[in-house]
Amino acid sequence: MLNISIANIIYTIINLLILFFLMKKFLFGRVDQILGERASEIEAAKKSAEQIREESQAKIDDYNAKFAEIERDRDRLMSEAREMSGREYDEVIANARKEAARIVEDAKKAAQVEARRERDNQATQLENLVLDAARKISSAKHDEESDRKLYDEFIRMGEQEDV
């Protein structure tokens, strides 16, 4: 039972080494390979996901920039349009004012003309009156009383005319 045989010890050592290489090659090697491949795949997937994320981030940034530009353009156009319409409005208002002023002016002129004509009219009437009075005076006798009467009548007529 206890006899030690060097040869058997060596056989066992060889057996152990064979088992080691067997396990190393077929068990640990294969398992490590699979796990390594899986790990590298996960790593690659992670990397690609990261890349995609970065790309999409860049795209989003790009879009944001474009959007901001568009916004700016829009604002500019809007303000331009507003400015233009404001100017037009001002112009229209100015024109209207000018027109109104012209109309007023015309009206004033017309009124003046009317007034002048009226005055002229009155003047002619007065002239006629004077002429009439003069004719009356020249045709009547000249005494003091009749003269005064004539004057009074004349003044009354003139007052009546004036009213």
Binding site: S5, A7, N8, Y11, T12, N15, I18, L19, L22, M23, F26
Partner: peptide
């Protein structure tokens, strides 16, 4: 001489393999 135990470890090795 090859002992029984060594033959048994051969069997074990074969089974494990």
């Amino acid at each position: 001489d090859v002992n029984k135990s060594v033959v048994l470890t051969w069997i074990l090795l074969a089974v494990l393999a």
